[in-house]
C-alpha cells in the first residue's frame, strides 16, 4: 500500500498519462476492495463474543436432602438448593470465594463448584433460613383457598395402598396447583405421567398430552415441582407410576384476563 502511495506522488510529477493509469488502478482497487469489504455497512451483524450457559439447579435433585421416611410429621423445612456455581466475590465470605464471576470467561470453563455449593447449602440451613421458611409456608398457605393438607395421606400398606397413595399424590398436586394455577385458553388440559422412586423422590415427569396452553403447562410443571417437595415414599418401597390429568376447576373461576 505504501509503495503505491509513493508511486502516485512520483507518477504525478512524471506524466499525466501515468497518473491516469495509476488512478484508474487505484479506482479499480477501491472498487474491488469495496466489493469485498464495503466501507459503509448499514446494519452490523451483531454478535456476542461468548455466551455461557450457566448450570441451573436440577429440578428433580432439589429435594434429595429430604428424608424419605418422614410421612406423618409436618413437612420439614425444604432445603433450598443453591445453584451450583461461582458467586460474585462481593457477596461471599473470603473462604467461600472460588472464582470471581465477572472475569471475562474465554468459554464454558466453570464447572459447577460442588464444594462451594455444599458450603452454600450449609449456610442456607442456618436459623435464618428456618425463619424464612416459616414465613414462606404461612404465605404459601394463604394462597391456598382451602382444603386440608392431610387429606389422603397414605395408609400403612395393603391391597388398596396403590390407589390410596394415588389419592395422596393427587391431593398434594391439587394443593400445589391452587398456588400456581394460571391459563390463557378456555379448557386447557395437560396429561402428565409421574414416576416416584421408592424413596419418595420424583424420578420422572413426562408430559403425555397437552391442549397447547403454554400458561397452563407452566402452571402444571410448577405445581409438580412444588408438590414433589412433600411426596412421601410409596407404600411397600416400590416405584409408583401413574398418569395425572391436570385441568383447572373452571366453573367458578373466570377464564379471561
Amino acid at each position: 500500500m505504501n509503495s503505491r502511495n509513493l508511486r502516485i506522488d512520483t507518477g504525478m510529477s512524471v506524466s499525466f498519462i501515468a497518473s491516469a493509469v495509476i488512478h484508474l488502478a487505484v479506482f479499480l482497487l477501491l472498487a474491488w476492495y469495496g466489493r469485498l469489504m464495503p466501507l459503509q455497512t448499514p446494519i452490523q451483524e451483531t454478535y456476542y463474543v461468548d455466551v455461557v450457559n450457566l448450570p441451573t439447579a436440577n429440578p428433580q435433585s432439589g429435594d434429595s436432602a429430604q428424608k424419605p421416611a418422614e410421612s406423618e410429621a409436618p413437612p420439614p423445612p425444604p432445603v433450598l438448593t443453591p445453584p451450583a456455581m461461582a458467586l460474585p466475590p462481593s457477596v461471599i465470605s473470603p473462604k467461600a470465594v472460588s472464582k470471581p464471576a465477572m472475569v471475562p470467561v474465554p468459554q464454558k470453563s466453570e464447572a459447577p463448584d460442588t464444594a462451594f455449593a455444599e458450603r452454600m447449602a450449609k449456610l442456607e440451613r442456618s436459623a435464618e433460613a428456618r425463619r424464612e421458611e416459616a414465613v414462606f409456608d404461612k404465605l404459601r398457605s394463604k394462597l391456598k383457598t382451602g382444603g386440608s393438607s392431610k387429606i389422603g395421606m397414605p395408609g400403612a400398606g395393603g391391597a388398596e395402598a396403590g390407589s390410596r397413595y394415588g389419592d395422596y399424590i393427587k391431593s398434594r398436586l391439587e394443593d400445589a396447583l391452587k398456588v400456581t394455577s394460571s391459563y390463557s385458553t378456555k379448557n386447557p388440559e395437560v396429561v402428565v405421567r409421574l414416576t416416584i422412586a421408592p424413596d419418595g423422590r420424583l424420578s420422572g415427569v413426562k408430559i403425555e398430552r397437552s391442549s397447547g396452553d403454554a400458561t397452563f403447562e407452566l402452571a402444571v410443571r410448577r405445581a409438580i415441582d412444588l408438590a414433589s417437595a412433600k411426596f412421601t415414599a410409596p407404600p411397600g418401597r416400590t416405584v409408583y407410576e401413574n398418569g395425572f390429568v391436570f385441568k383447572p376447576k373452571s366453573i367458578s373461576s373466570g377464564t379471561s384476563r
Binding site: 395425572f244 373461576s253 377464564t255
Partner: peptide, 10 residues
C-alpha cells in the same frame, strides 16, 4: 387409571 387433578383459580 388416570387421576384427575383440578384446582380453582386463574
Amino acid at each position: 387409571g388416570y387421576i384427575e387433578v383440578t384446582a380453582p383459580g386463574n
